[in-house]
Amino acid sequence: MPEDIPEDEGEAASSPSKFDVERLAKVLSLVAIPIVVAVLGWMIQNRLGGENIKLEYVKLAVSILQKPSSPDDPSGLRDWATDILNQNSPVKFNEKTISQLKSGEINLSTLKGLIAATNNGSSVTVSPDGKSVAVATTRNTVEIWDLATGRQVFSLRSNTNLVTSLAYSPDGRSLYAGSQDDTVREWDVATGRELRMLDLNAPVLALAVSNDQKTLVVRTADSHLRVYSTSNFQLLTDIKLESVK
């Protein structure tokens, strides 16, 4: 005849311990959160189209990176969010910025303003050192934001029409802004002061600064590609794009 087993011991033998339950719950939470993120991403992708998908993924990544880093964070979640943010950045982050984002050293808790500005903007560019970002808004202004704090540093106001394109100089000291008001303006990044203005007699569609910082290339709505000296805005080359085969 089997021995009688105390009631408490029988329950312990037939059910998991408190430790096992807690461990199981923690494992499930680690698995569930990435799945929830994946499902949200799937829902976003099926609900939206085009560039809006990227924007929604960026919002999701920022919502994760807004929270302070914690030992209880699911493994790899901040890494995933950082990679999404970096993949959708016009200029890729440097290794230090990536490391700071993944470790939680960079605080994105106040980055909501930047996201709002990007929603209403037509052009975004990240500084060469990865510390700031410039955003063109529908208010005909250019806003410079600090990526480490998420705070606006400057709001540059002088354009009379929409700013369509932005480019930092390779040394990060100047910011060039092309606009539908037919101008390119150069701004001092350190002071927010307008340095010079170039009048092109046609709306600006795109611009870029050469790696040696000696030339500024501007594409305009009249199908011209113009190359200027950055030292004095002297026209060096004027190419009619329709003639290029």
Rank of each mutant, 00 (worst) to 15 (best):
I84R: 04
I98T: 14
A13K: 06
V62A: 09
V153E: 13
K18F: 06
G172P: 05
L85G: 06
A61T: 06
V135K: 01
S127P: 05
P128N: 11
S122F: 11
R139Q: 14
E242Q: 12
K26A: 14
Q87R: 04
S99M: 11
V163R: 01
L175V: 13
G76A: 08
L162W: 09
T137H: 01
E3H: 09
N86D: 15
E186R: 15
G130I: 00
Q213A: 15
A134R: 07
G192E: 09
P203D: 14
S165C: 15
L108S: 01
D8I: 05
E242I: 12
D4N: 13
A81M: 14
V37N: 00
D20R: 03
A81W: 10
M1L: 03
F93C: 02
T230H: 11
V209I: 15
M43T: 11
L48S: 10
T82N: 09
D181E: 07
D238M: 02
D181H: 04
Q87N: 08
D83I: 08
D8Q: 08
E11R: 12
R23V: 02
L65F: 12
Y168F: 15
T230A: 05
V91D: 14
A202R: 04
T215N: 06
S17C: 04
R219S: 12
D20N: 00
N161P: 02
L55K: 13
H224W: 13
L24Q: 07
G76D: 09
I144Y: 08
Q87K: 06
T237Q: 14
H224A: 09
L236S: 10
N107I: 01
P68D: 02
V153W: 02
G10D: 11
W42K: 05
I98K: 15
N140F: 12
S155P: 00
E143L: 09
S103N: 15
Q87A: 10
A136D: 04
T137F: 00
N52H: 09
I84L: 12
L40V: 04
D146C: 08
T118R: 09
L60Y: 03
I144E: 05
G113P: 04
S210D: 08
L175Y: 07
T220K: 03
A117L: 11
V153P: 00
L77Y: 01
V39L: 06
E105S: 08
A32P: 12
K245N: 13
S89R: 03
R185A: 10
R157H: 10
F154S: 05
T220W: 02
A190P: 02
T141C: 07
V189Q: 09
A81F: 13
E143V: 07
T125G: 06
T118Y: 11
S99K: 15
W80V: 02
G50N: 13
D182W: 05
S174Y: 13
S231N: 04
T137G: 08
G113N: 06
L40Q: 03
A167Q: 13
V126I: 15
F19Y: 10
S229H: 08
G49A: 12
N88P: 00
K131I: 00
A206N: 14
A148K: 15
I64P: 10
L241K: 01
R196I: 05
V244R: 09
D20G: 01
V163D: 01
L205N: 14
S75P: 12
K245D: 13
P74Y: 01
L195G: 08
L198S: 03
